[in-house]
């Protein structure tokens, strides 16, 4: 029976994103296999990819969620830096206060929880500005981006905050069985949870509906404002976790870390088939887009005569290429 196809809720018809992206991923892998086989397909390379990917991958999910709701979140990097900045300052302060170095683990845990709370509050601010005050998402998050990084700058006077407890970096670099890095584990866990929320929960359906038509959502009795606020809060939480990971990798916090990630996350979301108009996109496709992005990024790094800035050029071309490709494949 055809109706049984219903069991997979979000397998949108005529959606070629998955296939396209798998092809792209395969092309990159094959190209690298031919050009730099030994270097690319090495344990070290894959492990370093596994360390790099989570920090912007989580922000990409945040961006994707905001875009599905029909908006955009330009403040993800600002939220990440602000929450890691506050976590860093707390860790340093508290670590100096406590006499017993064995207790430092609790300091770290508390600081991380506070950071996540900060991310939640930042997201809450975004959500309120968008839903209750009615500022268009692009402007609201543009403003809050300035605000969040402004607060980070004020807190740090524009400097990098170093001298974190060494244990923190150690935790960040921990790898399960010496293979799977902790950040990657966190990333996978969060990816599964977000995916589960979108596909298996009432919130998921509501989110797509609000993204597709706010007015109809209101007339269907959905709490539109609540859903928007929840979504931006979720984006805030994801960004703050990403900020914590970034802090552990760089062993410091600074107000202007990771500024290139806004564009990258937008690129990943679009590559992953998230429609900028809202209402469409799913996490597994975004996941594949993140992988493609990481493959591509690592591949470029293997050609040392490519200046790092060429990445910018390539990201721009990929973004426009994907947009044009989507346009053409849809019009057929």
């Amino acid at each position: 029976m055809k109706h049984d196809a219903l069991s997979s809720r979000k397998l949108q018809k005529n959606d070629n994103t998955l296939l396209n992206n798998l092809v792209v991923a395969a092309v990159i892998l094959i190209t690298m296999a031919i050009l730099k086989s030994s270097k690319f397909f090495s344990f070290t390379n894959f492990q370093s990819m596994a360390y790099q990917l989570p920090q912007y991958g989580l922000m990409a999910f945040a961006m994707a969620l905001a875009m599905i709701s029909g908006g955009i979140d330009l403040s993800i990097v600002g939220m990440a830096n602000l929450s890691s900045m506050i976590a860093a300052l707390m860790m340093i302060k508290l670590a100096n206060l406590i006499p017993n170095q064995n207790l430092i683990i609790y300091v770290i845990i508390i600081s991380c929880l506070i950071a996540i709370l900060i991310g939640l509050l930042c997201g809450l601010l975004n959500g309120l500005l968008i839903s209750k005050i009615g500022i268009p998402p692009i402007l609201a998050t543009l403003g809050s981006m300035q605000l969040f990084s402004g607060v980070s700058i004020i807190l740090s006077k524009g400097n990098a905050i170093n001298r974190l407890p060494p244990l923190y970096a150690k935790i960040g670099n921990y790898a399960l069985f010496n293979i799977v890095p902790l950040p990657l584990l966190i990333f996978i866990l969060l990816a599964l949870s977000v995916s589960f929320m979108l596909n298996k929960s009432a919130y998921g359906i509501k989110l797509y509906m609000v993204g597709s038509n706010t007015k109809a959502a209101k007339f269907s009795g959905l709490h539109v404002d609540k859903i928007i606020i929840q979504t931006y809060c979720l984006a805030g939480i994801l960004s703050s976790v990403s900020g914590l990971i970034m802090m552990s990798r760089l062993n410091s916090a600074k107000s202007d870390y990771g500024q290139q990630y806004t564009l990258q996350c937008l690129l990943i979301a679009i590559l992953g088939g998230v429609n900028p108009q809202g209402g469409h996109g799913n996490i597994s496709n975004v996941m594949i887009a993140i992988l493609i992005f990481q493959f591509l990024s690592s591949s470029i790094n293997m050609f040392p005569y490519f200046s790092n800035f060429y990445k910018l050029l390539i990201w721009g071309i990929v973004l426009l290429g994907v947009m044009i490709w989507n346009k053409y494949s849809k019009s057929r």
Partner: peptide
């Protein structure tokens, strides 16, 4: 078209959208 339906969403989701709390 603008108040009653989610035009670019599945028929199935449109049917159940107001009834989600009973289905979850």
């Amino acid at each position: 078209l603008t108040e009653g339906l989610f035009l670019d969403q599945a028929i199935s989701d449109n049917i159940i959208v107001s009834n989600l709390e009973n289905l979850s």
